[in-house]
């Protein structure tokens, strides 16, 4: 059907552990729980912080998501619960709720822009843009190293893969400078 090579490479990312923390952002509990679970500080609005394989992402004013190797999840859950102590806070293992894809190549940004109303040109490194890809919710970020990561619910993973594959079927419009 398409005469062109795909303009971006699409790959499922290996499974990783994901933990949701919710708590009052005006109290110390949430910050302490993040520190205890992954050793990182509380990120600012829409920001992500990374230390090796451990990542913390701002999801909402009272919610963060932690990423880590699957084997570290049990210890992180226990540490976060202990840090919240008697204060109110939610700690949940959501490792199976979502899947990650990587979209790489010089025109990766254009592939995502085709599917989302978000201003993809404004998405800087270490910022998570929660938006939609066609009709499904998604989180998108990159670390300034070429590849974008896309996070979607597992129940729509196959649909997301098909969407991204279709959007990557060329040719490129060249709206964004290649490789940016």
């Amino acid at each position: 059907m398409h005469d062109h090579q795909p303009i971006a490479r699409l790959a499922p990312a290996p499974p990783c552990g994901m933990v949701t923390l919710k708590g009052d952002p005006g109290r110390a509990g949430l910050r302490r729980a993040v520190k205890a679970a992954v050793g990182l500080s509380l990120p600012g609005r829409r920001a992500m912080l990374r230390e090796g394989e451990r990542v913390v992402a701002w999801m909402a004013p009272d919610e963060v998501m932690l990423f880590m190797p699957r084997g570290d999840v049990a210890a992180a859950l226990a540490a976060a619960r202990k840090a919240f102590g008697k204060g109110s806070g939610l700690v949940a293992d959501v490792s199976d709720a979502r899947v990650l894809f990587t979209v790489a190549g010089p025109h990766a940004r254009e592939v995502l822009a085709r599917l989302s109303p978000a201003d993809m040109g404004a998405l800087g490194p270490g910022e998570m843009r929660r938006t939609r890809l066609a009709q499904i919710p998604a989180g998108i970020w990159h670390w300034g190293e070429g590849a974008f990561t896309v996070m979607v619910f597992r129940s729509v993973a196959e649909h997301a893969r098909a969407l991204l594959e279709n959007a990557a079927a060329g040719p490129e419009a060249g709206f964004f400078a290649p490789g940016t």
């Binding site: 609005r45 829409r46 909402a60 004013p61 109303p117 978000a118 929660r130 938006t131 939609r132």
Partner: peptide
Amino acid sequence: PHCGIAADETE
């Protein structure tokens, strides 16, 4: 006002 994103109506 919570996350500062200029969101499209469809979001």
